[in-house]
Design a protein around this nucleic acid. Structure first.
Lengths: 139, 139
DNA sequence: GTGATATTTGCAAATTTGTCGCAATTAGTT
DNA sequence: AACTAATTGCGACAAATTTGCAAATATCAC
């Protein structure tokens, strides 16, 4: 059964595999990443909006679901206005976002990997997360 | 003067460097990337919420400011729960998000680049954007 | 199974976020 | 200073997200 792993994971957390949770899981399984809005629309009549928000949050905490992107953030780029590389490090402890130095090797590899799969890349952004230097020291 | 470049760029676009625009610029300059909410809070009493939205949009169009991330999307990761690679391609035409195949060379390079700058990476996500195969054909 | 207990759901209400129109203010000309 | 165009702040709005709570559902011991 495809729900077995899921049920076990939930159990371990003191939660259970309920009908709405199965629905959200099914909507995400083998699909491209979905927005909440799409999930809500596709589950219309089957599961409540608030339940979907809560389910997705639960799944994220359990590591069943991965949330893409940190949100919208803005940064000045007077200095590298024409460079097009946007690599950042996000410290999960102090929640600061740092810029990573430009690296042309990495840029090239990212482009070539993407082209190899049939896409036409125009740009990209890389978010690495973990601990920054000072947070690693104190933790 | 630090505002000279900014003023020139705005001028070229038929816009001018006003008080609220200076405020937003100052809030972003030499700072880590900020959310709109933070900007609004920090400019409280100095600049209106709508103005901040409009300013940030203007700055983005002029290439003064870069907007990180595409938004929130969710995907299952039962299959690669322990792998930690989250590479996606976002088509700016059809707005679909595709998964990119795992690539250990790329993973390794991302880690090493980050470590070299003193960070301790635990994971990352890469968002490449451009045109997908079918959108490139019709455009 | 039945009943007690804890979890989960759906609904409604509240809050937050992002947009838009418009009158008042401000900047750029001349 | 006077005119014109750009910009602001405010209020109103729709959409997105969060929260409280009573009803429904799942779990567990028996």
């Amino acid at each position: 059964m495809k729900y077995d792993d899921l049920a076990a994971l939930l159990r371990k957390n003191g939660s259970s595999l309920t009908r709405p949770r199965k629905i959200v899981f099914d909507l995400l399984l083998n699909q491209e990443p979905q927005t909440i809005q799409v999930l809500v629309r596709r589950a219309a009549g089957q599961a409540d909006r608030a339940t979907i928000y809560r389910t997705v949050e639960l799944f994220e905490n359990l590591g069943i679901v991965h949330r893409l992107n940190i949100g919208w953030k803005y940064k000045i780029e007077l200095s590298d206005m024409f460079s097009g590389h946007h690599h950042h490090f996000y410290c999960t402890n102090c929640q600061k976002t740092y810029s990573l130095a430009p690296n042309s090797m990495l840029e090239t590899m990212i482009d070539s990997v993407t082209v190899k799969e049939g896409f036409s890349p125009r740009g990209h952004q890389l978010e690495v997360y973990g601990l920054c230097e000072s947070c690693r020291k104190v933790n």
